[in-house]
């Protein structure tokens, strides 16, 4: 077994511990920033849907504010955003490197995209359902929880799957500026030291991650579709 590993992965087998660590770092980045971003995006997505024109709590000023800020952040390429955020990242996380230093830029990078996705997922909820909720005397908060979120679950799961896959991509980018993780590993060994086995192995690991997320997402979405 050891021999096989050495033959297939001549370079990686020398730094296996570092490789394992990079996997853990990637998982940490995806889970922690994904979770924080999910909560934020859910809130922003709901705000967008209910404050838009003819929404449940129509507030054009609030809607426009969120709408424009999201567009602003979405127009900045992630790698530039990381650099631009460094001072704030230091302030919030105490450091701009390592997993701890990547969480803030990852959240800032993915939340605008995620919020838009949640917004479109909630917009798929039939207006007629919301109207019937109003007609039966539910309050706006009850409508958000009992109708928008409940009826939107399948769509929310679907867009979360897409977003998690994008987030895995972002963790690879953030690695380049000192974040660690599989992206960092692939760049340092695979690219800079020209060790192809490191590159290919990184791809395989990321492929496995993405597949797991996709299968899980599809399963959950189907479970909530009646």
């Amino acid at each position: 077994m050891d021999n096989l590993v050495r033959i297939l992965l001549p370079n990686v087998s020398e730094v296996l511990d570092e490789f394992y660590l990079s996997i853990i770092q990637t998982l940490q980045m995806v889970f922690i920033s994904g979770l924080i971003s999910f909560v934020l995006s859910l809130i922003i997505g709901i705000v967008l849907v209910v404050t838009k024109k003819n929404g449940l709590l129509e507030r054009p000023i609030v809607f426009n504010l969120f709408d424009k800020v999201i567009n602003l952040f979405r127009s900045i390429p992630f790698i530039i955003l990381i650099a631009a955020l460094i001072p704030i990242t230091r302030l919030i996380s105490g450091t701009a490197v390592g997993v701890q230093g990547t969480l803030f830029p990852l959240v800032v990078g993915i939340t605008p995209f995620f919020s838009r996705q949640i917004e479109s997922a909630l917009s798929e909820v039939d207006e007629g359902l919301v109207e019937s909720g109003t007609a039966m005397g539910l309050s706006p908060v009850q409508i958000i929880f009992s109708i928008y979120l409940k009826e939107g679950i399948a769509s929310i799961v679907r867009v979360s799957t897409i977003t998690m896959i994008s987030l895995i991509g972002l963790t690879a980018i953030v690695g380049v500026v000192g974040g660690g993780g599989i992206g960092d590993f692939a760049i340092r060994y695979g690219y800079q030291m020209n060790q192809l086995d490191a590159t290919y192995l990184s791809i395989i690991v990321l492929l496995i991650f993405v597949s797991i997320v996709q299968v899980l997402g599809t399963f959950l979405a189907n479970k909530h579709t009646h």
């Binding site: 039939d126 007629g128 359902l129 109207e131 019937s132 007609a135 039966m136 005397g137 109708i147 409940k150 009826e151 679950i153 399948a154 909530h224 009646h226």
Partner: peptide, 15 residues
């Protein structure tokens, strides 16, 4: 709550 309403498209919650 004292006024019931029904619709052409029924508006039942699919989930």
């Amino acid at each position: 709550r004292k006024i019931g309403m029904i619709f052409q498209q029924f508006n039942l919650m699919p989930s």
